[in-house]
Write a protein that binds this DNA or RNA. Structure first.
Lengths: 124, 124
DNA sequence: ACATCATATTACTATATGATAATATATTCA
DNA sequence: TGAATATATTATCATATAGTAATATGATGT
């Protein structure tokens, strides 16, 4: 291995990499991405999220807890119903970059690429 | 649910969301992030990656296969040794965004934030 | 051809977690 | 207070996968 590389290969602490990995892990489940997409157009309560995504109630509740704990969505109870909204819009910037990349890779499957453009409609 | 929201809630096909989730899943393991970091300074062979990361040989080999199949790294055999390099530099742009976000969230733990800045050194 | 070295694959175990049903909690209203 | 509704939690099962040891493949040099 070249010396220049060894100097550049300053180790990042496993703690920090763990945080980054944790962040990506939250985004690595279809159900959670569905929930985030459902919230993209604005605040929704749990029932609306269940309806929009078609996921089970307990499942949605559990995923919302994960998203909430990681600071991706914000929880706001109003009486008996609980409203959630996106707390971290940078999520969509990240998805946009990924989609650009995937669009390049998947240049064959044209209808899928069309669908990817949804992430390019930015939050207000 | 408001009508405006329902119109905006155009469903993305599970196939597409699956692709995005798959991409994030690959980035959601500390070991794979370690490998990507090791390759950030330039091309390396498997032995170098093992040495830099401290991971086991079989483990590195398996992770490299995953990274390779998703198009994140590029495989280049030279005789008996195999060199890998980052094929998708947008990975680091994504990590940069995540780190910015984490730095904001983790404003307390100052030494960890310092370490996060490594992702801000762009590829040439 | 054989020994050696680099990488890949296989088999296996342990762990994590997604989905779901059942139950609990908490608010609202009659 | 009690019924109805919204959300959260718990227990359970099934599946996926990270790590590792052992083995296989494949190239190089003698």
């Amino acid at each position: 291995m070249e010396i220049v590389q060894m100097i550049n290969d300053a180790q990042i602490s496993p703690t920090v990499l763990g945080r980054i990995a944790e962040y990506f892990k939250v985004l690595s489940e279809v159900s959670r991405l569905q929930i985030l997409c459902a919230l993209k157009s604005g605040e929704k309560n749990v029932t609306d999220i269940i309806e929009t995504t078609g996921l089970g109630q307990a499942n949605v509740s559990k995923h919302l807890k994960v998203l909430s704990q990681l600071g991706m969505v914000h929880r706001e109870p109003h009486g008996v119903t609980v409203y959630y909204h996106i707390a971290d819009p940078s999520i969509f910037k990240i998805c946009e970059i990924v989609c650009d990349r995937l669009a390049t890779n998947l240049a064959d499957q044209s209808q899928d690429i069309e669908a990817l453009s949804i992430f390019r409609q930015h939050q207000p």
